[in-house]
Simulated assay, not measured.
Amino acid sequence: MIELFQMGGPLFMSILTIELAAVIFFAAKCFINKEHSVSQIKSAGLLAAITGILGQLIGLFSAFEAIQEIGFVSPAMLAGGLKVSMITTMYGIIIYVIAIILSLILKAKH
């Protein structure tokens, strides 16, 4: 897990982890205070998904820029780079799914 965190890039993976903490915070706030802040949970989750996609796009841009400078890159190296670029997107979407599940649970409770 730590290896994936490092491969995904410390900047975007840290931002995504903070956004996961925000999702959990808003869910706990809604559960404890019985406030209807379900939209905050969904918004924080959506922000995580978009941040993950942005991280992937910036990573792909950097990778394609390096490929352009080098000229030839083996297909295996290209596939490895594409795989690494998807880590932030997967993490962001997982956080969004968690946010949706938590919001559905809290809606059912109220």
Results as ranks from 00 to 15, higher is better:
1 M>K: 05
1 M>L: 02
3 E>Y: 09
3 E>C: 08
4 L>M: 15
4 L>A: 14
6 Q>T: 09
7 M>N: 09
8 G>A: 00
8 G>M: 00
9 G>D: 01
9 G>T: 02
10 P>D: 07
10 P>T: 10
12 F>E: 06
13 M>E: 06
15 I>T: 12
15 I>Y: 09
15 I>M: 06
16 L>K: 04
16 L>H: 04
24 I>N: 00
26 F>S: 05
31 F>E: 11
31 F>M: 08
33 N>V: 13
34 K>G: 02
36 H>T: 12
38 V>H: 12
39 S>A: 11
41 I>P: 13
41 I>G: 06
42 K>I: 13
45 G>Y: 06
46 L>K: 12
48 A>S: 13
48 A>K: 11
49 A>H: 04
49 A>G: 14
51 T>E: 00
51 T>P: 01
52 G>R: 00
53 I>F: 10
53 I>M: 09
53 I>T: 14
54 L>E: 11
54 L>P: 04
55 G>Q: 02
55 G>T: 01
56 Q>N: 09
58 I>G: 04
60 L>C: 01
60 L>G: 00
60 L>F: 02
61 F>C: 09
62 S>P: 08
62 S>A: 14
62 S>K: 15
62 S>L: 15
63 A>E: 03
64 F>V: 09
65 E>F: 13
66 A>T: 13
66 A>I: 13
67 I>E: 00
67 I>W: 06
69 E>P: 00
72 F>E: 13
73 V>I: 12
73 V>S: 12
74 S>G: 12
75 P>V: 05
75 P>R: 10
77 M>K: 15
77 M>F: 15
78 L>S: 14
78 L>E: 08
79 A>R: 10
80 G>N: 09
82 L>A: 03
82 L>S: 01
85 S>Q: 10
86 M>A: 09
87 I>D: 01
87 I>H: 08
88 T>R: 02
88 T>H: 03
89 T>I: 00
90 M>K: 03
91 Y>I: 02
91 Y>P: 02
92 G>C: 00
92 G>W: 00
94 I>P: 04
100 I>Q: 11
100 I>C: 07
100 I>W: 07
101 I>F: 13
101 I>Q: 06
102 L>P: 01
102 L>D: 02
104 L>N: 10
104 L>T: 03
105 I>S: 08
107 K>N: 15
107 K>H: 12
107 K>S: 13
108 A>Q: 08
